[in-house]
Write a protein that binds this DNA or RNA. Structure first.
Lengths: 227, 227
DNA sequence: TCTAGCCTTTCATACAGCATGATAGTATGA
DNA sequence: TCATACTATCATGCTGTATGAAAGGCTAGA
């Protein structure tokens, strides 16, 4: 005899809901039926259903908003939860920097190999936006463009796990980094290497890319040191 | 006025429970008070409490067993969830391998610099256990010793964030890897490089260490390819 | 003396009903 | 015209009740 059912009802319901989403090809932002309805169609009680929904929410697959409804958020294969407690900001940032070096260095390496032409073009676009914003002294825009630039690189690795981990390390990194530097500094110390990096990716030159990336990280390091 | 409470009650409760665990220095395997009791001490309803517990469970911090109680499982700051079934095991393992190369490569690099004498000795001990187990054809013991060996290296980096990320990547890696190879293969292809790696750490030779580590990863790669 | 069967205790699991609160759209009235 | 009040829709949260799983203890029959 096979192992009998032992799984919790809420987990079964979660799978059911996921199957439902897949079946109806629900995309990000789409709305799920209200709880009362799901309750009936799945034939389970409300608290059980809520547990199932919460399970999916904690995995980042759903987002449930009070008074509005339940919405599809994400269908990524990985979800990373962090609960990092830090006592020393600077130490944490330095630790995180080492991790970023490893992870993003690998990403650059993979991007050199796997980036498609479209992706390279997209990087160029973001980099142009970046330099434009720096020239106009628009800090917010510059940061956004920079993030997009890096995102595109990580996308180009074609490695979902790597990308997910980098994303969450970024999140915790920037949570504790209130960018202590002025635009001019970035323009001088960091921007030129971005340009070199992109060039290297275009030329599929992994050594050049690695060197440029190390320079970027070095400028971040000195920013941290000067906190 | 400050931002009023917007957080969900269940999340607040989850934090409260976590604080409770920390406060009482609960270790892995310890038992939490039963729901009925927690319900009262936290002053919340049962369904809310259940949601809080489930939240912690989905993070891997707790394990709740029907008819027995709620138990502390783990207090890791970094947790990777693989949301659905991975459709292609091999692809996932290859992706994870790239991440491991980046992360653990960095760890080896840091360990060469920061490992204390005690840590180096500990590595040696674990490695001895490892080879012993291999000789006696004891698969289980060999794996445990191997894990301990690597753990000690990551410990020696003195980088908590790096260590916790590596830990969770390991967890998801081994969840999908049912080690398809025999002990003899390991003895030939993988073990010698472990010895070289340790030598390199002892000699504080980062290049040699990096090379040995790459060899180990290479042997893992070919194991994966042959699945 | 041993042990299978039954009870009890301790817990989690699940359901149903009810009250509250958030959000958004719509109607009302000065 | 525009703010205010009403209302529908949905999630949030609490409680009473009952079901079910695990473990330990008790008792009767071999």
């Amino acid at each position: 005899m096979k192992t009998m059912k032992k799984e919790r009802l809420s987990e079964m319901a979660a799978k059911e809901i996921k199957a439902y989403m897949k079946e109806r090809h629900l995309k990000e932002g789409d709305k799920l039926p209200p709880v009362s309805e799901l309750m009936e169609t799945l034939g389970i009680g409300r608290s059980t259903l809520r547990e199932a929904l919460q399970l999916l929410e904690s995995r980042g697959a759903l987002q449930v908003l009070n008074g509005k409804g339940t919405f599809v958020k994400d269908i990524k294969p990985f979800h990373i939860q962090t609960s990092i407690e830090i006592d020393n900001k600077k130490d944490f940032l330095l630790e995180a920097l080492e991790v970023r070096k490893a992870l993003e260095g690998k990403a650059v390496d993979l991007a050199v190999v796997h980036a498609s032409d479209t992706e390279v073009n997209r990087m160029q676009t973001h980099l142009n936006r970046y330099v434009e914003a720096l020239k106009n002294n628009e800090r917010e825009k510059a940061n956004a463009a920079d993030a997009d630039f890096h995102q595109t690189i990580y996308q180009a690795t074609k490695n979902e796990l790597l990308k997910s981990i980098i994303d969450s390390v970024w999140d915790s990194f920037y949570e504790f980094w209130n960018e202590p530097f002025g635009v001019e500094d970035i323009f001088d110390t960091s921007y030129p290497y971005h340009e070199t990096l992109l060039q290297a990716i275009k030329e599929r030159d992994s050594e050049k890319a690695a060197a440029a990336f190390q320079q970027i990280m070095e400028s971040v390091r000195s920013s941290i040191e000067n906190i």
